[in-house]
Design a protein around this nucleic acid. Structure first.
Lengths: 230, 230
DNA sequence: ACAGAATTTTAAAAGAAATAACAATTTGTT
DNA sequence: AACAAATTGTTATTTCTTTTAAAATTCTGT
């Protein structure tokens, strides 16, 4: 996956910060400091995703979006200081993509960007994304896990947590990372994570006390190991 | 499926709003602010569907429809503030394919547009549209579901619900979405949905307690999953 | 080996969806 | 019209999922 992201943000410092996060994730990004400049870029190059700050000088984010949507279908992540803007966007039927409230956690933003790019590039390829590990097959957007062809009964949340872990397999994810990305909330009861980790282990590990896939890194979080050596 | 939609709506803001919804769904659309302009467009370009507001200045929606139907057979969705207009249209024997009352839910409108385009593009190809999943074949027009050639006994409502789910397969549909689209009413008893989901599962799933096609997304709704992985 | 921190485990309350059984309505048949 | 059969809609109950809380265990550094 090689994503090209257009960031529209008038505060250059914040824009460059986002660029930094994205380059750490292996994503190319371009920064436009106004809606006008952004439309120019879009005219000349193709992007996979747009990160849009609503509060812009001159043509504002809403106007941009209205115009943008007439010509482009790529996903947009909206960044805004006021969470009430979300209702406005939704009311306009613009709520297709994602909404992130300032101040945001960098990891949350990059996780969503990656997920969106994957989802939309897959559609263009008309190809289903399936993760395989051991005897398992996880259908990314099918909410379905099979073991040797048999459906494993996982609840919605269980699948969502598993999906996030697998998407980031090989990386250590803190309970906080998991919470912000799966629950899509900044605050809440993080102790739920441990409960879900345990439920997943009981359902997918041979011996849930000795997990092969879903390991704990004490003090750091959890990590999903795709291929282990026997 | 690449649909081209002509919107006839004198209030430009509403027209642009509809365009917005449609572009979010990957559909091209053109806006005409009067019946006269619309006829001009139709003369020059070919469209797959027309969305018509009845209340127009100059030549009104009824007159337009009367004239339009002499020349074109493409489907029409009528948008109107007065639900009594539906009777008038029907009384005139005018072939409107769908009727939507203002204010409408964006999702409802786009779902109907998508369904109509799919159904009618098949006519132009003189080809029956059949949706296949697993051993099943769903014939859209015939209200027929076959499993390995054998007809599966589904009631009308059951087929309608299934069809709606399949038309939007891969998307999560809330009970409310299903209700508004299938029952074509804004308000009513939504608990019926769960009952129909269950009836469908019993008829099409191998193990209705572990569905592979018709999945529940807890807290969100239901999703129809086409097959994956062999 | 100990204290404190982090994680796992268990349990139970709250919320959502599935189920079964029934009543009302529609449809077809004689 | 009267009846039977099938479909549709409604409701109460059960089951499952999610969330929350707290106790038990394990881990880490000293």
């Amino acid at each position: 996956m090689k994503g090209k992201v257009l960031i529209i943000e008038d505060e250059e410092e914040i824009g460059e910060l986002i660029q930094l996060f994205l380059s750490n994730e292996g994503l190319d990004s371009f920064l436009a400091v106004s809606a006008e400049q952004a439309l120019n870029y879009l005219d000349r190059e193709s992007f996979d995703l747009v990160v849009l700050d609503l509060n812009l000088p001159g043509m504002d984010g809403f106007e941009f979006l209205l115009d943008f949507r007439k010509h482009y279908t790529i996903p947009v992540i909206i960044v805004s200081a006021r969470s009430s803007d979300e209702d406005v966007i939704a009311g306009l039927g613009l709520g297709a993509d994602e909404f992130v409230t300032k101040p945001f956690k960098p990891k949350l933003l990059t996780a969503r960007i990656r997920a969106l790019i994957r989802r939309s590039s897959k559609y263009s390829q008309q190809q289903r994304l399936i993760f395989r590990f051991g005897d398992y097959e996880l259908d990314y957007d099918g909410y379905l896990l099979k073991k040797k062809g048999e459906i494993v009964n996982l609840s919605t949340r269980e699948i969502e947590v598993l999906r996030f872990l697998i998407e980031n397999s090989g990386k250590v994810l803190s309970p906080d990372d998991i919470f912000t990305s799966v629950w899509q909330q900044e605050y809440g009861d993080i102790s739920a994570i441990a409960v879900y980790i345990q439920r997943l282990r009981k359902k997918i590990e041979e011996d849930y006390r000795n997990p092969q896939y879903l390991k704990t890194i004490h003090g750091k979080g959890y990590i999903f190991i795709k291929d282990f050596i026997k």
